[in-house]
Amino acid sequence: MQQKFVPEDDFGSFLSSVQRAVHQQKGQGASMLIMSRLARQKEAPVTQMMTKVKVSWSDFTEGLKYLEDAGLIEMEDDENGGTLRLTDEGQHWAQTISLELDDDEDQG
């Protein structure tokens, strides 16, 4: 009979939580599209971002939730339907991602 893996300590629970997140994949595709877009413009209205990343509504909302949970973006509610902003760490990511975007633009 197959036994379920039960982590015995924090170290084990970290490894299993990473494995879970890697295999979950829900929202991750849209997440990188949102991050790439935010790397160019730092903040954007949710409605504008939705039209730019061109994914389904459910993928988009999953992507936003994923990035919020990861601490890379924050969403501020306003009368225009909300604004997306990069957190401090999100800005560090965006700077690094923009290296690749710059390379792509140079080649393209």
Binding site: V18, A21, Q25, Q28, Y66, A70, W93, L99, E100
Partner: peptide, 24 residues
Amino acid sequence: QDKFGKKLALLANSPMSARVKTLL
């Protein structure tokens, strides 16, 4: 650690270049 796990998963599954993934 959980937040970090999510970022790590995002990197592992992303199509970015190995150089950018390593830097991130």
